[in-house]
Amino acid sequence: MEAKIVDFRKIEEKCGLPKIEALQTYIISRARPGEVYEVIARDPDTWYAVKELGGELGYEVIDERVEDGVYVVIIRIL
């Protein structure tokens, strides 16, 4: 399944919510099981949060990478 790309910075700016709530509101609550998302963060702190919150929010991390200051986590909704 092709990953949908999500720029986390834009979500944070749009909703003004803490990271965990932004992730829940703008990705998880709208997603269907099995969908894959490529979440792009601009800082290591957000990247770490996305990697670590899968258990709480109901997704699994299937890949992660850092390239040129861009922090990427690929997740699959459970």
Binding site: I20, A49, E52
Partner: peptide, 10 residues
Amino acid sequence: YDPASAYNIG
């Protein structure tokens, strides 16, 4: 500012 997304997860 946001412990739920920071301290609490690591």
